[in-house]
Simulated assay, not measured.
Amino acid sequence: MAPRKTDPVNVEYEAKAKNLLKAELKRKGVTYAQLAELLSGRGVQENERNLNNKISRGGFSAAFLILCLESIGCSDLRL
């Protein structure tokens, strides 16, 4: 059975994913508007506001996380 959105473990790891992505964006000096442009170049249409909301919630897929990280040129992660 898949974990529920309110499951404390799920909440914890969504927060970790959100913080990881935000930290990498900050480290690379990439804004949400710039990320939207980079994603557009890969065929993914997201605007700055949607990205802000999606990342703030933290409820995005692993595929989205990897897509964003690759788009900003992040090849190494420290967990």
Rank of each mutant, 00 (worst) to 15 (best):
M1S: 15
A2D: 14
P3W: 15
P3Q: 11
P3R: 14
P3Y: 15
R4T: 09
R4W: 06
K5V: 13
K5S: 11
K5R: 10
K5T: 15
T6E: 12
T6P: 05
T6S: 15
D7F: 01
P8W: 02
P8M: 05
V9T: 15
V9A: 13
N10G: 10
N10P: 13
N10D: 11
V11R: 07
V11K: 08
E12I: 10
Y13C: 09
Y13V: 12
Y13K: 13
E14S: 13
A15G: 13
K16A: 15
A17W: 04
K18R: 09
N19L: 14
L20I: 06
L20V: 06
L20R: 06
L21P: 05
L21Y: 04
K22R: 15
K22L: 09
A23I: 08
A23N: 14
A23F: 11
E24F: 15
E24G: 09
L25T: 06
L25K: 00
L25N: 03
K26N: 11
R27D: 08
K28N: 01
K28S: 04
T31K: 05
T31N: 00
T31P: 04
Y32A: 05
A33M: 08
Q34A: 07
Q34H: 01
Q34C: 04
L35S: 00
L35T: 03
L35E: 00
L35W: 01
A36W: 01
A36N: 04
E37R: 06
E37A: 05
L38Y: 09
L38W: 05
L38V: 10
L39Y: 04
L39P: 02
S40F: 06
S40I: 10
G41T: 02
G41R: 10
G41H: 03
R42K: 11
G43L: 02
G43I: 03
V44N: 09
V44P: 07
Q45L: 15
Q45A: 13
Q45Y: 09
N47T: 10
E48N: 08
R49L: 03
R49I: 04
N50C: 08
N50V: 09
L51Y: 01
N52I: 13
N52L: 09
N53R: 13
N53G: 14
N53Q: 15
K54S: 06
I55C: 00
S56C: 02
S56T: 12
S56K: 05
S56H: 07
R57M: 05
R57E: 08
R57D: 05
G58Q: 01
G59N: 14
G59K: 08
G59F: 04
F60S: 09
F60K: 04
F60C: 03
S61D: 05
A62C: 07
A62S: 11
A63M: 08
A63D: 14
F64T: 12
F64V: 04
L65D: 03
I66M: 14
C68S: 08
E70C: 09
S71V: 08
I72G: 02
C74M: 03
S75I: 10
S75E: 11
S75T: 13
S75G: 12
D76Y: 12
D76Q: 14
D76E: 13
L77W: 04
L77D: 12
L77S: 06
R78D: 12
R78S: 15
R78A: 14
R78N: 10
L79A: 10
L79T: 14
L79N: 06
L79Y: 12
